[in-house]
Amino acid sequence: MSTFEFPPSIRSRPVYCVLQARPGKAHLMIADAEGAEALIDLALRAPELMAKAHVIYIPKATDFGAALKALNPAQYYEGPSYSAAVSRIKRVFLDASMGLQIYLSGTEGLMGQALSEAMQAGYDHTAIQTEHRGSLARRMQCVHCKGITEDVSNDPFQCSHCGLNLFVRDHYSRRLAAFQGVCIDAEEPGNVPPSKELYS
């Protein structure tokens, strides 16, 4: 099981829990990659959810699709990427009735973006649960050019838009669903320490 205990951090950094079955008229489950395992665990504990569940899954490079489908959710969709799936996600939020329970699992980037959509659609954060699984990579905003770099797993890293070398902060914006990246060699251009895997 690919779970990770995040060390204590600053107050803007999100914390995640373990998905709990909650009573609701409908259940929307959005996961990417190993996030599928959290949904499978949830379904094992509360199989009755699945008949009212809509599962939206982005496998990335994993293959949990068949196992998820085998849970027999009322609706199942598999998309190639978050950006491909997002219009569908928005549509589902728009239609959903009050009493919808939202379950998000997988990478921080997936959960953060789906959470931000749900909040914009007017869902209260108390109706939304998140469970981290899989990659520790982060979605980063470059504070200088504002470009977002997805799946950053090393610190420092190079902004995929402006090319600056950025260090990875824990400061997190829920609105942007991103952590902040700040130029690491501003005071000594060219002096960029070797990149290390996050939390290594």
Binding site: S12, R13, V143, D170, H171, R175, L176, Q180
Partner: peptide
């Protein structure tokens, strides 16, 4: 500090980077 990054945050969130005071 960046307004563009911090907009929408609450009191504890935008103060998150400050050492010792929390």
């Amino acid at each position: 500090w960046s307004l563009d990054f911090d907009i929408g945050m609450n009191f504890f969130e935008w103060h998150a980077p400050v050492p010792l005071a929390h």
